[in-house]
């Protein structure tokens, strides 16, 4: 784990990781996410994006997904989080022994699934902190945990913001409205650190980040690495994987995982390109 010392203090406010852990270490400790023979169509069945897709992510592991533009990486992230318009025609997704595909998007969030969006949305008129407090408390309530009081939440939010070098001013503005591309990405990580999800999907969070921000973000992600958490990191660049070293690297091409390797494999890919695997 890389250094992110002050942040870990922040975890002690309010959120009860202990309770979280109980549910995390349920029946099947080894496999957190299991995707089996998945087929996904979009546009009311007009286009098949994923087919015969298989992927297992054990708890405690970080898997990277790379692959050419349009391969279906974001599609995968949306299927996992339950976005409308992405229809599963075959296969299954099991998350901590539950059928993920049966759950509403907000139920998946409550179960600990978090997506850092490739293109974060703007929420007009809703201040960032209001939004996040609502989200955090909605999750806590749904899990039967105690909600965070306004002052406790503020303390925590300020502390996390400081670590991510987010100006307090920004937290008063409507979420993402008028934020720069990099600021939006940083805000995704801010939300992630506040919500402490059990399973994280990051869709090109590194794109648009400057070098310093990339470091800060990677430190934040690494601070969340734990034996109970799983992560799926979608990226085009080796650079991020230098900071967040994955257990496995997969190439998504032709609707499925075309090839997998270890952390070094990403380097080979960067040198050789996808063509060899995408055929």
């Amino acid at each position: 784990m890389q250094a992110f010392p002050k942040l870990s203090e922040a975890w002690e406010f309010g959120i009860n990781l202990g309770k979280h852990d109980e549910t995390l270490q349920s029946k099947d400790e080894a496999l957190m996410l299991k995707i089996n023979n998945l087929s996904v169509v979009v546009n009311n069945g007009e286009a098949t994006i994923l087919s015969g897709f298989n992927l297992d992510v054990p708890a405690g592991e970080v898997h990277a997904i790379m692959g050419p533009n349009g391969a279906g990486k974001s599609t995968l992230s949306y299927v996992l989080t339950g976005r409308d318009g992405y229809d599963v025609t075959e296969g299954s997704v099991t998350y901590r022994d539950e059928n993920l595909l049966d759950m509403e998007p907000e139920e998946r969030a409550v179960a600990g699934l978090f997506l850092s969006f490739q293109y974060p949305l703007e929420i007009p008129g809703v201040p960032t902190l209001t939004f996040l407090r609502t989200a955090l408390n909605a999750q806590l309530r749904a899990r039967g945990q105690e909600e965070l009081s306004a002052p406790d939440f503020m303390k925590r939010a300020r502390s996390v913001a400081k670590e991510l070098r987010i100006k307090p001013d920004m937290l008063k503005r409507p979420l993402n409205v008028g934020f720069s591309g990099g600021e939006k990405k940083r805000m995704e990580i801010f939300q992630m650190l506040l919500l402490e999800p059990a399973f994280i999907v990051m869709d090109e969070t590194d794109s648009g980040l400057d070098i310093d921000a990339l470091r800060v973000v990677a430190d934040g992600v690494n601070a969340l690495r734990s034996p109970e958490r799983g992560m799926l990191i979608i990226t085009h660049y080796q650079r991020l994987l230098d900071y967040i070293v994955p257990n496995k690297v997969h190439v998504l091409a032709g609707g499925k995982i075309a090839v997998s390797g270890d952390a070094d494999f990403a380097r080979t890919l960067e040198a050789d390109g996808y063509d060899t695997y995408a055929a």
Binding site: P105, E106, F117, I123, L132, L136
Partner: peptide, 17 residues
């Protein structure tokens, strides 16, 4: 969808917006 992904129930998301 973004709001629901963060755990805010659909009805609440709609009323907030």
């Amino acid at each position: 969808f973004y709001m629901r992904q963060r755990g805010i129930p659909q009805a609440r998301s709609r009323s907030m917006l």
